Amino acid sequence: MRQALRIFAVVLAVSLGCSLVVTSAAVLLKERQARNLRLDKIEHLLAAAGIAAEPDADPLQIFKTRIQALLVDLDRGRPADPKDLGIADPAAFDLRAASRDPTLGEAIPKALDLAGIKRRPRYMPVYLVRDGQAFSRLILPIYGRGLWSTLYGYLALERDLITVAGITFYEHKETPGLGGEVDNPRWKALWRGKQAFDAQGQVAIEVIKGQVDPARPEAVHQVDGLSGATLTTRGVDRLVRYWLGSQGYGPFLAWLRNHLNSLPALDE
């Protein structure tokens, strides 16, 4: 009997010890994974803005010194006070959770859901790029349906809020070699210098099927489609147009054009 109790005690102690090790490892790994995910998003954000980091530079430090996060009320087209919403840091705003939240998110009428996302946050973070205290570029989070997945990324505009500075996607599950070519640096480079809006201020950027004819006047608004990936091409085209339009950042961009000279300093 005593021998059986000893065996039971040893087994119990080993089980408890293993459980403690596994639990501790899971907690530590979860924290590390969250940090790595945040770091990856920051690196993509900086890449979209064309900010090249030195080999030994810390992206987090570059973000702190060059980037200012604002929370935008999409309906009003104005910056919102994060504290009014109980948000400590606009840069940490969880747009997926917000879109599902009955207070922070809302359903999109089907006729207006160009990006195929069904719901959207009522608020979105945007990022001002600073050269010193001078505003130089604007980075906009974007997302929408592709063929197999929802693509999440960033679109950067130059200070004129018309010219595309860059685009990148930090998360998607599109087909490697086809829709997955949204990750190809050569394709992303095609976006730089394109005009997102026409002379009347209407969204004009589009991802076309096939290649752009540089001799045509509309070429300044067009980007080559992804070869063999018609549905992903269409998805990227629609999500970009959605977020630049009246359902997305359109009202805020109109407001910002009139307030470029009165933006808060980076350390405010």
Rank of each mutant, 00 (worst) to 15 (best):
A34T: 09
A53D: 02
L28K: 13
H44P: 02
S19W: 01
V27M: 13
D58I: 01
Q33E: 06
L46P: 11
E54D: 13
D40L: 08
L60H: 09
A9C: 03
R32Y: 11
V11E: 02
Q33S: 01
R35D: 08
N36R: 10
A52K: 15
A47W: 12
T23A: 14
L12E: 02
L37E: 13
D40Q: 05
A53S: 04
T23E: 12
D56A: 14
E31Q: 15
G50V: 02
R35S: 00
A57Q: 05
C18I: 10
Q61C: 07
V22R: 00
P59M: 07
D58H: 00
E43T: 08
A52E: 15
S24I: 07
R32G: 08
V10E: 09
L12T: 03
V21T: 04
L39E: 04
V22E: 05
L39D: 01
L60S: 04
A48V: 10
A57V: 12
I51V: 06
V11F: 09
P59Y: 06
K41S: 08
S24N: 13
D58V: 07
A47G: 12
E31S: 14
R38N: 11
Q61L: 11
H44D: 09
G17Y: 02
A9Y: 01
D58W: 06
A47V: 06
H44Y: 00
V11A: 11
I42Y: 10
S15V: 04
L20C: 11
S19E: 01
K30W: 13
L28F: 13
E43A: 02
V21P: 04
A53W: 02
S19C: 03
L45R: 05
P59N: 06
A25N: 12
P55Q: 02
E31K: 14
E31D: 15
K41T: 09
G50F: 05
L39S: 05
V21G: 08
V21Q: 08
I51T: 02
E43F: 01
L12R: 04
L16I: 03
R32I: 03
V14H: 00
I51H: 06
V21M: 00
R35Y: 05
S15D: 04
A9D: 00
V27D: 14
A13P: 05
N36Q: 09
D58P: 04
H44C: 05
V27T: 12
S24P: 03
A26N: 15
A49E: 03
Q61V: 03
T23M: 09
A9K: 03
C18N: 15
Q33H: 06
E31H: 14
R35P: 11
A49W: 03
A13Y: 05
I51A: 08
R32A: 10
L29Q: 15
A53Q: 02
Q33K: 06
V22H: 05
G17T: 00
A52S: 15
L60I: 00
F8T: 11
P55D: 03
L39H: 06
I42G: 12
A47C: 10
A49Q: 01
S19A: 04
D56Y: 13
A9N: 04
L16A: 00
L46N: 00
A25C: 10
L28G: 14
C18G: 11
Q61H: 13
G17A: 07
V27N: 14
A34H: 08
A47M: 08
A34W: 07
L37D: 13
R32L: 01
A48E: 03
D40V: 07
L60K: 11
A13C: 06
R38A: 10
I42C: 01
A52C: 14
E54A: 12
A52D: 15
A34G: 07
C18H: 15
S19N: 12
I51N: 08
